[in-house]
């Protein structure tokens, strides 16, 4: 059965295609002329259409796009450089400002310190003067007090003597006696 199928295939395919009086169509010289003519016409037409209309149009679009991309990239590059520059300027300004602020703070501190020192010196001088005065007064009071001691003693002695002997004694007498006693 399989053989029969194969034989049938071989028997039908070959004679119909390349039978006597029939040429294998792709190699039939009788069809060459119309094919060549129409190939020349259609291929030529396609060539002209593509060359004149289509390819310039496509090429233009592609070129324009690549130009645009190039331009955009260049601009982006430029903007980036500008940004870098601006950033640099900003950093510079920032550090300048910082330095300036530091300087101002320092002068201000120095000035304040100087003023405070001056004030303190003044106040200390005043205190010292008051202290000296107070000391002087203390000394005076002390010497006065010491000087009064003798008198008080003689007065007290006078009173004691009066009580003891029941007789008034003058101050001078007491004093004399005291001085005499002290001399002995």
């Amino acid at each position: 059965m399989a053989d029969k199928v194969g034989a049938q295939k071989a028997g039908t395919a070959v004679p119909e295609g390349v039978g006597p009086g029939k040429v294998f169509p792709p190699l039939d010289p009788g069809t060459f002329a119309p094919q060549l003519i129409w190939l020349a016409l259609t291929f030529g037409l396609l060539y002209l259409v593509l060359k004149r209309v289509v390819l310039p149009r496509v090429g233009e679009v592609i070129e324009e796009r690549s130009d645009r991309i190039k331009r955009d990239l260049a601009q982006a590059e430029k903007l980036k450089a500008d940004t870098q520059k601006a950033l640099g300027n900003y950093e510079q300004a920032l550090s300048d400002a910082r330095a300036k602020a530091g300087a101002i703070a320092k002068t201000m501190r120095d000035k304040l310190t100087a003023e405070v020192d001056k004030e303190r010196a003044k106040v200390e001088a005043q205190i010292a003067a008051k202290l000296a005065e107070a000391e002087k007064r203390i000394t005076e009071t002390k010497s006065y007090a010491l000087a009064s001691v003798g008198e008080i003693a003689s007065e007290v002695a006078g009173v004691i003597v009066t009580r003891l002997i029941g007789k008034d004694v003058t101050k001078d007498e007491v004093k004399r006696a005291l001085v005499q006693r002290a001399a002995e």
Partner: peptide, 11 residues
């Protein structure tokens, strides 16, 4: 069986 060459004929 269909002819495999038929498709190449030019009319």
């Amino acid at each position: 069986m269909p002819d495999p060459i038929h498709q190449f004929e030019i009319h």
